[in-house]
């Protein structure tokens, strides 16, 4: 988060100073601290640097996906294809590596195919005026179907470079160990923050989300921003998929099923408004951390079944949209 963040162009936010704008993000961080505090209070060994580090290790791919989704939602769109594109990426990576491609080429292919798919969806959305919901839903079906076209079975990754990257760790002070995925995820976040707040493209993204017609009348390159965000999301999904393939060391068409909903939930919990124009990448990261903490809590509890995770996420989602209603006045029917 940076002080240079552009103020909201449409003025939908109640007039206020910095704290008011950042309130949703601060609230998300507060919830994260509280849930983590509850965990530390109840379970021995919960309050440790490694548990925090593991939140990042286990959710690195989710962070990357949430970054891409934040771009799309900031323009008022939505991308339902992220989970499927991530699965497709694990599949392409596994299949190309199995065919003996060098790892760098496999990685490039994955990133290029994800970005292309995103670009195509963006073009259809912008130039044919079809709803983002429907286009990305079709994209989701397409990507999942393509996975099974490559192979119906799960393909394991045997490539030594990938295996090294997946298993090698970085030691931080205090006996904390993280993987390279975490580094990649945090780099992605840093780049996203830079792009959103310090480049022309980022400002246009916020402007389009505030009011597309005003942005166009101001002479901003709205088409480029609207198509671009889907390409960014496609790229992030592909990158997230690569991280996921490192995590699972396999490619499979049923990887990351329903992950798009987790990602959307994380972004919304992070304080980004679905109508567009308002939100921060830092918030989305906090949202992912909250989801991760809930999962960790439930696994520490042991007796609670995994479906409680879903219920808790639903309740959190509800609490945060209520909070948004209180802070941000949004037009009721905007979608």
């Amino acid at each position: 988060m940076t002080v240079l963040a552009p103020s909201r162009p449409s003025g939908r936010l109640l007039p206020g100073r910095l704290p008011q704008r950042f309130l949703p993000v601060i609230a998300t961080f507060a919830v994260f601290v509280i849930t983590f505090g509850v965990g530390s209070f109840r379970y021995e060994g919960f309050f440790s640097g490694q548990v925090v580090a593991n939140l990042f290790v286990d959710n690195a791919f989710l962070i990357v996906l949430a970054v891409g989704m934040t771009f799309v939602i900031l323009t008022g769109g939505i991308d339902l294809s992220v989970g499927a594109v991530a699965a497709l990426s694990t599949m392409i990576a596994a299949a190309t590596l199995e065919a003996g491609w060098p790892p760098w080429l496999a990685v490039l292919t994955v990133l290029a195919s994800g970005s292309t798919l995103g670009l195509l969806m963006g073009l259809v959305i912008h130039y044919f005026g079809v709803q983002p919901f429907i286009v990305t839903l079709a994209g989701m079906f397409l990507a999942r179907g393509l996975c099974f076209l490559i192979s119906v079975e799960s393909v394991s990754i045997q490539d030594p470079v990938f295996r090294d990257l997946a298993t090698s760790t970085i030691s931080l002070p205090g006996d904390i160990v993280v993987t390279w995925s975490v580094v990649i995820a945090l780099l992605t976040v840093a780049v996203a923050v830079y792009v959103l707040h310090l480049t022309r493209f980022g400002r246009t993204v916020y402007a389009v989300g505030g009011s597309e017609s005003s942005a166009r009348l101001m002479g901003l390159a709205t088409s480029r921003a609207k198509v671009g965000v889907y390409m960014v999301s496609g790229f992030c999904s592909a990158l997230g998929g690569l991280l996921f393939s490192l995590y699972m060391l396999s490619g499979y068409g049923l990887h990351a099923v329903g992950m798009e909903l987790d990602v959307i939930a994380a972004v919304v919990i992070g304080g980004t408004v679905l109508a567009g124009g308002f939100g921060y990448v830092a918030g989305s990261v906090a949202g992912v951390l909250v989801l991760g903490t809930v999962q960790t809590l439930i696994s520490f509890e042991g007796t609670l079944s995994s479906w409680w995770t879903k219920i808790v996420i639903g309740v959190l989602l509800l609490a945060f949209i209520m909070l948004q209603r209180l802070i941000v006045r949004q037009p009721s029917a905007a979608r």
Binding site: A265, V268, L274, W307, L317, L318, R325, Q330
Partner: peptide, 23 residues
């Protein structure tokens, strides 16, 4: 009544509902 966007309002039940059914 609350004026929440339909997609997100129903996402709440979509996520939590399956958990409830499992319960």
């Amino acid at each position: 009544v609350l004026g929440i966007q339909p997609i997100i309002a129903t996402l709440v039940l979509m996520t939590a509902g399956r958990g409830v059914a499992m319960l």
